[in-house]
Design a protein around this nucleic acid. Structure first.
Lengths: 342, 342
DNA sequence: CTGAAAGCGCTTACAG
DNA sequence: CTGAAAGCGCTTACAG
């Protein structure tokens, strides 16, 4: 099924078919021809070949999301948000490396060879950003501190963590620990830093055990907790902040096994507010990170970029709405959900 | 960066460049030229343009996974399995509709317009299969009963549910209920059917409330449970099988709220064995469905299909290994994990 | 408003 | 073993 066959049936040229199926008829195709083509398209069930179209246009309608891992249910929400905001004009291609690894330079090039309409990169590292050839519009997700390298959409961790520390201090905790994520991305570095700096401001001590970290997975977190709990306990830690809810699940499970009472002996908190967090036992106190809003925000930033450069090209205006939208990109709110575990 | 530039630098034709970068040099390119091209490729950082290559070849290296929803953490595992088995030769494109809806005919055509190397479809419905234009190699996941329509990879629900019923009967239950999924796909139909038929064989009654169903999401399940619990209770139901672990989480949460003791008053079970299921309270008894193995199996079936038709084309042999592999496609084991909730 | 034609960057018979 | 050339199916100036 090709445009040539449609043209044949409609009695027009393929150029006209292309104009019609792409909706570029204004002042260029007669109403009569529009209708002929449309009816031929319907009759033959014609769909524009994406590959040929992309080659001719120089760009595809594929938007690629690069994510380090998908076993964390958190990403399901991000993807929902992206899909919802993207609409049916674009296709979402997912590139995952798994196990907290980042894509290699080869992976990056393979992605760019797809001529994507946009690249959405979750928690990129330096190597990724360095290897990335120019070309595709780029938006970073969950990459605090990289705002100068590309349009970025982030959570308002400062507020969320401040609320968490206030809550912990009010419950009488004076020494807190942190179970980190092994994926050393900015968002986790920032969580740790904010905790460390904020603790003092709230009259608490931050007991640092940098090795206490695991992948985003309850089993790994459980093992890490089993290993480091004695040190935290001996240091007087009564509240353990976990890098994600998935980490917290593992801690909760292992604590039960070890007979460590939560929140009596140890308060436990997470980040994300996954659906199961209200159901685990004890129900998890956590900083909610609305993944869907993050996904939506990322797509908006992508579109702003596209529109911005369009205007730029069309009108040679250095500060189009794209640039404005970018500068104004708001942080995604992160609020504390207090339940039973802390 | 094009093949022409590489050819220029290497002092060869673009045809030779193409042969080299595609590894089709055997008996066709001299060692000297191979090295010249390779070094030019390295120097220029050349990567084959995927779009142009796909157009010329007639097929891309994109494999598309069509999934109804991604908020269910279960799919994270399926995707991991697919990625792992796919290797770096192919790219995985994800197409999601969300909220348990299936892709429309328009979506389907857009997908096929990408000329995918393969289509992996999770829980397809009739409309999808009907609208699907021939062309791309197809594998169905989680589609019991559709084995005759396309190569399919399924869980061994029969064994898993039989084990579940045996366990429930041994614990003295005589009347069981089922909280269904609203996404009316084969796998859920089959779970219900096996439960209904199997109950009698295990000396139990199946109390049918067909309307008792929700999307795969704890909140929806909680609401459904709140609504139908009185009817189940009045009918003497002491064990409630939930369509997925996510459903069960909602039931557990709501039961606690309502003061329904689990498993004392009501035993609750799920399907999937998500990471959080060991941590929820009470820990969930569930039928484990290894998503990663499902993903791997699907890719193997896809490759078998590809190899099969290759051989077929090359040697005109009606029963190549592809066909054999297909017929032998084993069910993915589903085993019962007994914890505290039932 | 219309169509012939060039071009997007590759791959693959084909002739040598 | 090598390269010129056709072709993949579109899109987009361009001339009319």
């Amino acid at each position: 099924m090709t445009a040539a066959e449609v043209a044949e049936l409609a009695g027009t040229s393929v150029a006209t078919v292309s104009l019609v199926v792409n909706g570029k008829t204004a002042g260029r195709v007669s109403q009569a021809n529009i209708e002929r083509v449309l009816s031929a398209v319907r009759e033959l069930g014609y769909v524009v070949d994406h590959t040929a179209s992309s080659l001719a246009k120089g760009t595809s309608n594929i938007v690629i999301l690069v994510a380090p891992d998908l076993s964390n249910p958190f990403y399901g929400r991000v993807i929902s948000g992206i899909k919802a905001e993207l609409g049916s004009e674009y296709q979402l291609l997912l590139s995952v490396t798994g196990e907290g690894r980042n894509p290699s330079a080869a992976d990056v090039h393979r992605l760019v060879a797809l001529r994507p309409a946009g690249l959405l990169v979750e928690a990129p590292d330096d190597a990724f950003l360095r290897d990335l050839p120019a070309g595709a519009p780029l938006v970073l997700l969950d990459a605090p501190g990289r705002e100068t390298q590309a349009p970025t959409v982030n959570f308002d961790l400062t507020s969320g963590i401040s609320a968490l520390l206030t809550h912990l201090a009010a419950r009488g905790h004076t020494r807190i620990g942190y179970l980190d994520s092994l994926t050393r991305t900015e968002t986790f570095e920032l969580r740790r830093t904010l905790l460390e700096r904020g603790a003092a401001a709230h009259g608490m001590d931050y007991v640092a055990i940098p090795e206490a970290a695991s992948l985003i997975d309850p089993d790994g977190a459980a093992a890490a907790f089993a290993k480091y709990w004695p040190r935290w306990r001996d240091a007087g830690v009564t509240a353990l902040v976990c890098a994600t809810d998935s980490h917290a699940y593992g801690v909760l499970g292992k604590a039960r096994e070890l007979g460590v009472s939560v929140p009596g002996t140890l308060a436990v908190t997470g980040f994300d507010n996954l659906p199961a967090s209200a159901i685990v036992s004890p129900a998890l106190t956590t900083v909610e990170l609305p993944g869907e809003a993050l996904g939506r925000g990322a797509v908006r930033a992508l579109m702003a970029q596209r529109d911005g450069s369009d205007e730029h090209a069309d009108q040679d205006r250095p500060t189009g709405p794209g640039v404005a939208a970018l500068a104004a990109a708001p942080l995604i709110g992160a609020r504390l959900i207090v339940r039973d575990s802390a």
